[in-house]
């Protein structure tokens, strides 16, 4: 299975026979302790879990053979209430920001922090607040619901995987890294936990203003809403279109630079 995921991702070009035997042993080992995963859906659009499910090639075996989904409303029909306590989880993916006025969301998030070994801010709403940052309340169905914040504002978060949504590939790569205990790969996502106030204007403040921009265009390419263009070799952000997902700054080669991983991936 792991071999299949790696093949799908183009990871590790090992000789096939050798690879398969090693992988079988490895997967057999994993079988003993399948990670228990929970999926918690707060104020998000379900786009993040849809992106997860876009890993068609590996999804079914991933969900059935490699992990146990022990909690969630979409991936597993498990709800938590006073009679049914939330199960213990090795890893909880939290989609969506948390609304400070929504007692149920707040309670669920705090309970998840108690029950999960690792809490992942999954998608930009959970990681940076994303477009829920624009909420000012006064709407139906609950006009009191006004203040939506990244979950790291309320609980300790271990990993952040921003993206509106995170790409299917980064989700698969992260799953592989978690299963392999590949902390080096996960390090940038641990660092991103602190990046909760994202905005297209970060390109100006943290790259152009800091004499770091080289006009490569990666930011403009990665913007999911086409809010970023390039004018005279510099990013120009249309703030009316920006959803504050943080992807432009995160993909910028001048924000952080994973040199060792890149060389490893290229075989250099």
């Amino acid at each position: 299975m792991l071999a299949r995921i790696k093949e799908f991702l183009g990871m590790e070009a090992k000789p096939k026979e050798e690879a398969s035997q090693q992988e079988v042993e490895k997967v057999a080992e994993e079988e003993k302790a399948k990670p228990r995963i929970g999926y918690i859906h707060l104020s998000g659009c379900t786009g993040d879990v849809m992106s997860l499910s876009e890993n068609y090639d590996i999804l079914a075996p991933l969900l059935t053979e490699m992990v146990d989904i022990v909690y969630g409303q979409t991936l597993a029909d498990v709800w938590w209430d006073d009679e049914n306590p939330m199960p213990e989880m090795d890893l909880a993916l939290v989609e969506g920001s948390v609304c400070l006025q929504d007692e149920h969301s707040m309670k669920e998030l705090l309970e998840v922090r108690e029950k999960a070994g690792l809490v992942v801010a999954f998608g930009s709403c959970a990681a940076t607040g994303c477009f829920t940052r624009y909420s000012r309340g006064g709407q139906q169905a609950n006009p009191r619901h006004e203040s939506f914040v990244p979950i790291a504002d309320v609980v300790k978060v271990d990993l952040a995987m921003p993206g509106c949504p995170p790409s299917p590939e980064i989700i698969a790569k992260t799953v592989v890294a978690v299963i392999n205990g590949d902390m080096d790969y996960l390090q940038p996502m641990m660092d991103l936990v602190g990046y909760t106030e994202a905005c297209g204007c970060d390109l100006q403040l943290k790259v152009v203003n800091q004499a770091l921009c080289i006009g490569c265009g990666t930011c403009a390419m990665s913007c999911p809403t086409r809010a970023v263009g390039m004018t005279n070799g510099r990013p120009e952000v249309n703030s009316d279109r920006c959803v504050k997902c943080g992807v432009c700054y995160i993909q910028c080669p001048r924000s952080w630079w994973p040199a060792d991983r890149i060389k490893q991936d290229l075989g250099l």
């Binding site: 876009e54 993206g163 949504p165 997902c245 630079w257 994973p258």
Partner: peptide, 17 residues
Amino acid sequence: CQTMGLRKLQSYPIGVR
């Protein structure tokens, strides 16, 4: 520098599907 943007995208395609 553009190569670096490309390679970072390939190793960490965080928000680009």
